[in-house]
Structures are given as C-alpha cells and as structure tokens.
Design a binder for these strands. Structure first.
Lengths: 226, 226
DNA sequence: CCCCTATGTTAAGAGATGGTTAAATGAACC
DNA sequence: GGTTCATTTAACCATCTCTTAACATAGGGG
C-alpha cells in the first residue's frame, strides 16, 4: 500500500484539534478528510472510503461510540480501522469503545510523533489484514486463514516468511515486486538483512511449489506467474 | 512527468488569494494559470488543458460546484484533477463537492507548505493513474508493472537497461531524444560511459523488437516510431 | 564524389547479480 | 536443557548484463 493513497477521516467538533491533526498527517503524506460530527462523518466516509477513521468521543449530534456502532453495521466499513480520541480522564470509556468495534484509542493531548507512529501501527495492521483470506491463481490457492498453500488439491504448509513472500507475490500475479519492496513488505521497513536472504527464500519456494512459478527479473526483483 | 510541464489552473474571485497561490506554486516550478470565475475558467481550461484545477467554492456567475459539474461532463476533463477551495466553516459542503466529482478539498486560509504538499499529493495520484504501467503504441505494448514488452501478443523480456531505454523512447513516440538526454535519463546524470554504449543497446533493441521501430537522427539522437 | 565524422556491428571480458549450499544463529516447544 | 524447525549468513559458483574496443559503414557538406 502506498502511503500517498491512504485516506484518513478525522472527526472532532473542535476545529483546532482537527487542524492540528490534519497538519501533522498531511506533512507525512496522508490524504486527510475532516468532519465535525457523526452525521457528517458517516456521509463523508461513504463518499471517500477512508482506510482509517478517527473519532472524538464527545461530539454533538452523534457521539463517537454511536457513530462507530453505526459504521460497523454497514458492510463497507467492516474492515475500516476505527480509533477513538479521548481525553486522558475519559479512559473508563475504553470498555464501551472496544465493545462497539474500535481498533485503537488515542489520548489527548496529541503529541505529533506519538500520534503519527500510532497511525502507522494501525496501518500495518490494515496491511496484514487487507489481503483477502483466499487467493486462487490457476491451480494454486493461498489460504491466509489457515496459512496454507494448496496446489492441485495438495496442501503445502510453509514457514511464516516463505508464506508471506509467496502471499505477496501471488497477490498480484505477473507484477514485478522490486527487491526493496519485498524487503519492506515482508521483512518490515526497518529490518536489515543480507543480500542473499530473499534469494534463499525464493529458492525454498521454487523447491516446494515449483520452479516455473517464480520468475527473476535481474536487477529489479521477482514475480509470480502461472 | 516533469514538474515543469505541470499546468495548474487556479480559479477564485479574490485577486489576493489568486496571487498568493500563484506565487507559491510558481516558486515550485509549476505552470500557473488563473481565472476569476467559472465561465472564464472553463474557457481557459479548454485552451491550456491543465493537469489540476483548483476551484473556489464561492464565486460570482458560476460557483465552484457548478463549474466542476460542467467540467466533468466534458470528456477532455474526465481525468483532470479538481480540488475545491473552501473556508473552514463551509466544511459541510464537502459532501456536495464529492458528489460532483471533486478529488480533494483545500481549506482556507492557505498555508504554503501544506498547500504545496497537497498539490504534490494530487500529482502523485495523477501519475499513478496515467503512467499505469502500460503504454500501447501500435502493436507494441510496454508493461512497466510486469517488466515486459509485448509485440503482437508475444511477450519479450528485456534486460534492465534495454527495457529502460525502450521505455523512454516509447513514452513519446515520434519525439527525438538527444543522446545526452538518453544518457541522463537511462544511465543517470553522473554516469560516464563510452560513445558506443547507447548504440549497442539500440542495436539490441532493433534485433529483438524490429529494425524499423528505431530511427536514428544523425547528430541528434534516436526516436521510436510505429 | 570524396572526406570526415557519426553511427553500426561484433565479440570479448569485466562486473554485477542471482543461485546454491551448508553451517551458524535464533525461536519455539516439549 | 535438548531438540527441532525457521531464518539468516557467508562463501562460492554460475550466469547474465553491460561496457569497451576495434573495425566497418554510411551520409552530409564541401
């Protein structure tokens, strides 16, 4: 997922808070939308389909809890990440929040660095969930729920890294994934591993799944093809 | 996309706002046009085909919403990015805006840094849409995503430099690329290579793709033609 | 028509890149 | 704690890519 495609919807009745969050998020390259109450938020959310919605708890018309409950009843927001914004001493309300399907809590006052890293954490969660549970390409099927690859009816179980790598490549058959991209999506942005690590994993996959499925694009990366 | 080719059309009835935005955008190297109302905006847009149009919501003669709706009915502006400019307390109008096909909202007062990063974000969106990995010219197709050249249905895979060179030439069929320009775009500004290097790569392309596609312009460079 | 320079052609070798293997490290599970 | 599996590293090898150099050819200006 490219960060520049990530849309975030901020909902709060205090304009200052909205502006502050918006400024910080935009500086990071996110795509930010704002609403001042729950009604407005739901309408806007339907239009722009944000990846993340941040709801203030206390709002006029429809409060955060209510808005969240409402959103969660609509199928299109089943997988949207919803975080609540609370003042520190409202902490008790977390229980109610998680009950209506919140994914995280962020406490005011907002500190930019903490805030951003919180958002990034949410995003990582989204990334690991957003691929559909089952992908089928040709005679190969990937079942994310059971961590299994099924090839011609036969189940093949793969270690975690191999599975994630396979899963990434299969998610867009034919598309070339650059080594750099593979590293950041399978190993994580900050991990430093040696040059041969990817190759070794590719080798294992070729061994277990079949040579022909994984093509090397020299100087660029790898792609999956059936 | 070269930033110096990016045209932006600003539409607002307040001259001060226009000037302020124009100043900031021109400083970044954008090509800026301005109009004072919707009628003028549409006429100018037809003439210069801007990549981005920024419309103030409140304007005489024809307001932003109306102008946007009008523009969206014309096929040549199907892919143009349109952003609205709104005062903070007009936020509710976002809903109407997205309905007529707006791509983003920018709130006044304008803060230069946020404004520019917003424009760049829009631009990235544009790029990811139109450089969408596929260029088709005659019976030749270049697929950046799959790192493949397809000629008459047959897939031809090229080594990196050849692919980049091909990709560059095909990106503007008929246009002559100077040797110097080819060097800096395919090899990089700092690389020093011998005289014959480009020729050898062109030869390989002629061999693999076909002689007739690559024309030599003596003393200048090369061009691609179908 | 000839000369000069720019480009075409070829093959060879240097260099980059990925493949392979085994062994070291680390994590998880009795 | 020992065992097993997953993961990474390191060393070495194989191959592909790119560049060069040497020579051939073409084509425009005089």
């Amino acid at each position: 997922m490219d960060i520049n495609d990530v849309k975030i919807l901020l909902v709060d009745d205090e304009v200052d808070v909205l502006d502050f969050m918006k400024y910080n998020l935009e500086k990071e390259g996110f795509w930010v939308y704002t609403a001042k109450d729950g009604i407005e938020a739901i309408q806007l959310a339907k239009k722009v389909s944000p990846a993340i919605i941040i709801l203030d708890l206390m709002m006029p018309k429809m409060d955060g809890i209510e808005t969240c409950r409402e959103l969660r009843t609509m199928p299109e927001f089943k997988n949207t990440l919803i975080a609540f914004l609370t003042a520190r001493d409202e902490d008790y309300s977390q229980i109610a929040g998680f009950e209506v399907g919140a994914d995280d809590y962020i406490t005011k006052p907002i500190k930019p660095r903490v805030f951003i890293s919180r958002i990034r954490a949410l995003l990582r969660r989204l990334e690991s969930n957003d691929s559909v549970a089952k992908v089928v390409v040709g005679d190969i099927e990937i079942d994310r729920e059971r961590y299994l690859v099924v090839k011609g009816g036969k189940e093949i179980s793969l270690p975690r890294k191999e599975f994630e790598l396979m899963s990434l490549l299969v998610s867009k058959p034919g598309r070339v994934f650059k080594r750099e991209e593979i590293l950041s999506r399978v190993w994580g942005n900050d991990t430093i591993v040696g040059d041969r690590t990817i190759d070794v994993h590719i080798r294992k996959l070729r061994e277990k799944i079949g040579d022909d499925y994984f093509k090397t694009i020299k100087g660029i990366g790898y792609k999956f093809d059936a």
